[in-house]
């Protein structure tokens, strides 16, 4: 297997693990962790798209590195995606705090107000 193939498979597995725990867990904190794992998988997938064989980081130095540079665009996208993921996680955790205060539990099965 080539390097990108290994990375694609890992990204795929990370996404599946994240989505599985999002679907099966009842603890809301764990659901959010599952979301973060899936997020990680997507970020890995994006970075892998820019991969080039024997590529170096896209930074110009005084001593020119041999070989091609990897694609800078997916790396920039991942930076954005990480920040967005952080923002969503912070908001989600605050909501869980509020739910814990109002319901005294972070188990979705114990929160009966709405159907999950």
């Amino acid at each position: 297997m080539t390097v990108p193939q290994i990375l694609y498979v890992s990204a795929f597995l990370l996404i599946l693990i994240g989505l599985y725990s999002l679907l099966t867990q009842r603890n809301m904190i764990r659901m959010i962790i599952g979301l973060n794992i899936a997020d990680l998988g997507v970020n890995l997938f994006l970075v892998t798209i820019g991969f080039v064989d024997n590529g170096s980081a896209p930074i110009f130095r005084a001593q020119a590195a041999a070989g091609p540079m990897v694609d800078p665009v997916p790396q920039a996208l991942v930076l954005t995606s990480i920040v967005i993921g952080f923002g969503v996680t912070a908001l989600a955790l605050t909501l869980v705090m509020r739910l814990f205060v109002t319901h005294g539990s972070i188990d979705t099965a114990r929160i009966r107000g709405l159907k999950w």
């Binding site: 899936a38 997020d39 997938f45 908001l91 989600a92 909501l95 869980v96 739910l99 107000g113």
Partner: peptide, 27 residues
């Protein structure tokens, strides 16, 4: 209200999964 926190979290989790799919599609 209690119900609005729950609705918001539910919306957030579903929406985030949607965003993930969208990002994969963009990739």
């Amino acid at each position: 209200t209690k119900a609005s926190f729950e609705a918001s979290l539910k919306y957030l989790l579903l929406g985030s999964v949607g965003s993930l799919f969208m990002l994969v599609a963009i990739g």
